[in-house]
Write a protein that binds this DNA or RNA. Structure first.
Lengths: 212, 212
DNA sequence: ACTCTATGTTGTCAACAGCAACATTCAGCG
DNA sequence: CGCTGAATGTTGCTGTTGACAACATAGAGT
């Protein structure tokens, strides 16, 4: 009982992306090959070229998809956190860590050289959308008392960079020996708390005038 | 007039590492191949295998060398910053950014999947040494009033992750459109200031009792 | 039915990693 | 001085991969 095996796959592009996510998740990103994907999906070795010019293009597309999910994931975390802007922003930071842990394929793709050194337009757009979501939330948290006197753009870049750094620390296991006996994921959550307190009531009462 | 061309290169291992750093710096890390390095150094295609079992081993060795330089670079920055522990720690953070910018070959190697997913012992050791340098400096800054009430390990992980994240933001140019008209390197320095103030006089006067 | 375009296949080539067999150098030791 | 073994470098081979070209099939619109 064989599959009809139509000449045209019908949904090859998405099938390749899905399989790529699987492969990356459990064999790492170096184990990925266009030919391997073609084999896994049951298609000839040159078929992927119709949808992705080269490997970089495939990874960029995967990253683009990843950023869309990432944005949704982070937004969802904020929604579930209630109405306090600082608490929402804290929840978003935690969700960054959780996303990196639960979606390693997407997250490691974000940082892969083939992706970071690429100027693909749709990729940049999806990344920009993510940054804008963070930016809005940061502005609201600031209005609620978080680092009231800082430059908004710097503040946003800071929190974004710090959360990203913490997530990288968790995904790359390095340094795990110096943090002996500590759950890395738990450590990351405490880092988030250091970036943004879990609630606006815990913001420093006033931090004006640092330049006296 | 030919070069004597001794059968034995004499210093092949280091020559390969040096050439690798060059190639990565101006062609990116994916453009690196053992055979290409062998050609560039003027040696047969299988010669590198005597010194590096495979590509991962070479990259790990390069990263190990990189961490040694990184440690020296950061330590040097602290020395030049004077005696105020907070100012010293701030200078170290800035030096992380500067290192990433001035030594892109080493820095991008640090984050390459082939390196991060590797458990090479000498690599882990050199990385651990770097972390310990940061740890000591963080402890001194804390004693001088910086985040006096935080868990030292969390504090160190936080600052390390944040500085790393900022450095990544600068090396991967992404997000540069949302930070339009801003010098990324300058932005990164302001981020450092948000992590650690430039001087202990600027530490929050007291930040005890956040759990009232 | 006819045609254009999207999609998939087969065949080919160059580059590369990895391995094995062989050659040369060098250091130690009689 | 000459032997021997380890380190280092070379040549040759195999399998995988990315990239390309030429061709085949399917589907949509006229």
């Amino acid at each position: 009982m064989e599959i009809p095996m139509t000449y045209h796959h019908g949904n090859l592009k998405q099938a390749l992306l899905d399989r790529a996510a699987e492969v990356i998740a459990d064999q790492g990103i170096e184990a990925l090959s266009l030919r391997g994907l073609a084999r896994d999906v049951g298609v000839s070795h040159a078929a992927p070229a119709r949808h992705f010019r080269d490997k970089k293009a495939l990874l960029s597309a995967l990253a683009t998809e990843g950023y869309l999910r990432f944005s949704a994931y982070v937004t969802d975390a904020a929604e579930k956190a209630g109405s306090d802007p600082v608490a929402r922003y804290n929840a978003m930071g935690r969700s960054v860590i959780r996303f990196a842990v639960t979606h390693p394929a997407y997250y490691t793709t974000f940082n892969h050289p083939d992706v970071t050194q690429q100027a693909d337009e749709t990729l940049l757009k999806s990344h920009r959308e993510y940054l804008e979501i963070v930016m809005m939330a940061a502005a609201e948290a600031q209005a609620a008392g978080w680092h009231r006197d800082a430059d908004p753009l710097v503040l946003m870049a800071f929190s974004s960079a710090a959360a990203t750094g913490a997530a990288n620390m968790v995904t790359n296991r390095r340094g795990s020996d110096i943090f002996e006996g500590r759950d890395l994921e738990d450590l990351a959550e405490q880092i988030i708390n250091l970036i943004v307190p879990p609630s606006s009531e815990l913001c420093a009462p006033n931090n004006e005038d640092k330049t006296r």
